[in-house]
Amino acid sequence: MGSNQSYWQKNLRLIMICLLIWFIVSFGFGLLLVEPLNNFSLGGYKLGFWFAQQGSIYTFVALIFWYSSKMNKLDKEHGVEE
């Protein structure tokens, strides 16, 4: 029971981190901070614009695999891997 609760708590924590990164990258970098970020450039594009157009999507894809990898480790820790 304690192990299940610990597993669930760690899972929730991971989900919250993912959602926080999702929010920071999409809203933070793509909308709220777009003007200050546009003072920098990446690959010839203004950074704020790049985050709104491509950067946030790259981050979302990276988050999928990062979440998956962390959950696999968590499964192993708790002996519930596939």
């Binding site: 979302f60 988050l63 696999n72 499964d75 596939e82």
Partner: peptide, 25 residues
């Protein structure tokens, strides 16, 4: 595995939610 499937399933929903929220903002 199940975690990758779940994440791949959820990500587009978050993307759409973000798109709608951005539009609203």
């Amino acid at each position: 595995n199940k975690h990758t499937k779940l994440a791949i399933l959820i990500a587009p929903l978050l993307l759409i939610a973000g798109y709608i929220a951005s539009d609203y903002y």
